[in-house]
Design a protein around this nucleic acid. Structure first.
Lengths: 253, 253
DNA sequence: TCCTAACTCCGTATGGCTTACGGAAATTGC
DNA sequence: GCAATTTCCGTAAGCCATACGGAGTTAGGA
């Protein structure tokens, strides 16, 4: 990627504040960059990132394939623009309540966004594209813990911790839903197909704990796993840990 | 994916215990399934999953492209076999020490594996391929917390929590390293390129907290972020949370 | 008024990818 | 020695991103 593309993409990300850097000669563009980004998000929402292609975006806009390259430098840059676009969809309400409630709100916001746009979890993160909406949200996330008693460095690490946990959990959740839909077979059916081989090959006495735990979990979940419940459980533990850290920190300070 | 492929792949996963289901007629295979899997892992290690292709695997084996389909049903199934292969690389030492030390060991093992084989984080998880090494490791992970006082359901949720947190953290870490290597520019250089535009576009008074936190973090990390330190910090908080949960659980029981 | 620079749109081509299909050659059981 | 079986692989279809250059459109300047 050339520096020119970095600059160009930054200009596109901040196009609302920078204004159109477009020259005045030549034909007017038939659609707008916003149209391109919105169409691209729609394609990714419907088909996922592996099936996302430049052609499908232009088809939706009534343009021919190559025209898209007059709007955005390339595929990777378009995806960067899509990320910032969807980061601006949800309002960032003022924080209220206890530290725990605020942090839970931050985590829930991430969780919801990943489920609204599952392709976010399929993006190869290179260096982040710092767009306006992504930047605003980072500020909002930090505001949730501002003044709680953490150091500046800890504040960054806490947001990172929550982001990493939520991303990992959401990935499990989203993958499970996608698999169920795409494969067309339910967890129960999948088990029916696999059970004969697995029973032959995994004797119970060799897997005493996973056999017992798997049975209990399977009955409770009615499935191989329950990503939503695991998320709630995990988040509670993470928040416990952060509250505990704050208590022991305060004691020392 | 056909049921036949599911069966076929399960047979391949458990090939050591099931033996070769191969008929006796016809030419002998020039290489073995293990050769194919090892070559595939080598390609993925060196080039990552997006650049991983059937052709590169066969090139490495001295076969022509289409021959690989006599060894494995397809790309997705081969990746399932690769996952189980690398899951068996590390020994599973008996657990020792406190609960906290045991859980840290489980997390560290996941973390190391993701860094040895970063492509694991790029796999689209459909339903898991239950191979022998993956199964053994799940048993080992549960053994780390067996008898600590958690319910069976909680044991599953705890392993899931750690797996999700580690996967999310490792993804940040691995992506950062890949970006630094592939783009050829360091964090400092990247900042130098972006700073002029960002300073113009992100006035300090609009981003008071992220401006302050970003400055402190940047000085401390000498980079945009420090995934390794964030992992250690986050893991400590997660373990704090789990110990806290066990204490309050015991009080109730 | 008219030329020309700048810009958009897009046709073509290159070089990648997976995998369906079918043929040639090799090997073994009968 | 024949027939069934299996491996290896050539070909081709149908995807993908994007480099390059040409044709047509628009506005500014002479």
């Amino acid at each position: 990627m050339e520096n020119q593309d970095v600059d160009r993409t930054l200009e596109l990300l901040w196009r609302r504040v920078l204004g159109a850097p477009q020259g005045s000669r030549g034909p007017k563009q038939r659609v707008s960059v916003d149209d391109v980004i919105r169409a691209a998000v729609a394609v990714a929402d419907e088909e996922g990132l592996p099936a996302f292609s430049m052609r499908k975006v232009t088809d939706r806009l009534g343009l021919k394939l190559m025209s898209i390259y007059t709007y955005v430098p390339g595929r990777a840059e378009l995806i960067g623009l899509m990320i910032d676009e969807v980061a601006g969809e949800q309002p960032l309400p003022p924080h209220e309540g206890s530290l725990r409630q605020r942090l839970a709100g931050v985590a829930r916001q991430m969780w919801d966004e990943f489920h609204r746009h599952p392709w976010l979890l399929q993006v190869e993160n290179s260096r982040p594209w710092l767009g306006p909406n992504v930047s605003d949200r980072y500020e909002w996330q930090l505001a949730a813990i501002e003044g709680a008693g953490f150091t500046d460095l800890e504040m960054d690490q806490i947001v990172t911790l929550i982001a990493n946990f939520v991303a990992g959990s959401a990935r499990s959740s989203v993958d499970a839903r996608r698999t169920a839909r795409q494969s067309g077979i339910s967890d129960a059916e999948w088990w029916e197909i696999n059970a004969p081989v697995l029973e032959r090959v995994m004797p119970v006495d060799q897997y005493p704990i996973s056999g017992r735990v798997g049975q209990v979990a399977g009955q409770e979940y009615n499935a191989v796993g329950d990503p939503d419940r695991s998320f709630v459980f995990g988040l509670d533990r993470v928040l416990d840990g952060l509250e505990h850290h704050l208590r022991t920190r305060s004691a020392h300070a």
